[in-house]
């Protein structure tokens, strides 16, 4: 987890997204404790308020839940929801960036599709070896 202060994405959003990445990759399991505000503040050298903001984003999205006591846990079904969200909006943004870039360098649609297919093929060959 690393914060890029030069990014257009606000710091607290970066924190939220990093936690989401860790949930998707399996580092944080559902029903288990997530990172606390203080740990994030200390490790990433950010103000605890900013860390809290990032966590709250995830709480309002239903990804994290506040449990009795003080710890935050990963909500049940969070993984499912995140994957769904990434497919819907996150992935869509990647697509639009790809297409716009292709248009910019004058690459026709057919070529773009071919490049995608070729890349999938090469990945399959790599895993078969």
């Amino acid at each position: 987890m690393k914060i890029n202060f030069d990014s257009l994405t606000p710091v607290y959003i970066q924190i939220a997204e990093a936690i989401e990445d860790d949930i998707i990759s399996g580092k944080l399991a559902e029903g288990c404790a997530a990172y606390s505000q203080l740990i994030i503040a200390r490790e990433l050298r950010v103000n605890p308020a900013t860390a809290a903001k990032g966590i709250n984003v995830l709480v309002s999205k239903g990804i994290l839940e506040k449990q009795r006591g003080t710890s935050m846990i990963v909500a049940f079904g969070a993984l499912e929801r995140l994957l769904h969200e990434r497919r819907e909006s996150g992935f869509g943004e990647l697509i639009s960036n790809l297409v716009l870039e292709a248009i910019k360098i004058d690459l026709p649609e057919i070529e773009v599709l071919n490049l995608i297919k070729n890349y999938y093929r090469s990945l399959e060959e790599h895993t078969n070896e």
Binding site: I3, F5, L44, R45, V46, N47, A49, T50
Partner: peptide, 10 residues
């Protein structure tokens, strides 16, 4: 040196 401090400010 705001750039150095930035992380810890609220």
């Amino acid at each position: 040196l705001l750039s150095e401090l930035e992380g810890l400010l609220s």
